[in-house]
């Protein structure tokens, strides 16, 4: 099977990603003392690893420009934003609303990602999971969660 190859593919992304991450590491680590090979400072190993990342990134980039790589699959904004929303809702509500309500809302939001939504199922699933979460974490594992809003 011959997969079509393109210059603006996975390799381009991966190469740029490694170069950027290595560069960021070097930039934010510039205040760390490197020390000497005998007495390494806190910045020695990070610098080594970051330069390594920059090098690997350059090689990946060069290879993809010369030979091309597999194209990047298109992202689905619905899935990405849905996950961000669901986890964001959990983080925002767990402190104040307590485990029961927070689980309910989180599951309901997560269900919205599915294109073929059935309201009855969403209601049943979020109620069921919320109860299951309380049973497992509060009653069985005895973790001192706040269960209800204050």
């Amino acid at each position: 099977m011959q997969v079509s190859r393109t210059r603006a593919g996975q390799g381009l992304g991966a190469g740029l990603m490694f170069i950027c991450l290595g560069g960021l590491g070097l930039w934010f680590g510039r205040g760390l003392a490197v020390g000497s090979a005998q007495e390494m400072g806190p910045g020695y190993a990070p610098a080594l690893v970051c330069w390594g990342m920059v090098l690997v990134g350059t090689l990946v980039l060069a290879r993809s420009l010369l030979r091309g790589t597999v194209a990047i699959e298109a992202a689905s904004p619905r899935a990405v934003f849905g996950i961000v929303a669901a986890l964001g809702v959990f983080a925002a509500t767990i402190g104040n609303l307590g485990l029961v309500l927070s689980s309910l809302v989180t599951v309901a939001v997560a269900c919205l990602i599915e294109p073929k939504l059935r309201w009855k199922e969403v209601a049943l699933l979020s109620a069921g999971l919320s109860i299951a979460a309380v049973v497992l974490f509060v009653f069985v594992l005895r973790i001192p969660f706040r269960t209800w809003p204050v």
Partner: peptide, 24 residues
């Protein structure tokens, strides 16, 4: 399945750290 997995990950991580920041 996926809402279950998501919720389990959230509660699991929160139970260890007790901070909403860890979810982010």
């Amino acid at each position: 399945l996926y809402p279950t997995v998501l919720l389990l990950c959230c509660i699991g991580v929160y139970s260890l750290t007790n901070s909403p920041q860890s979810i982010l």
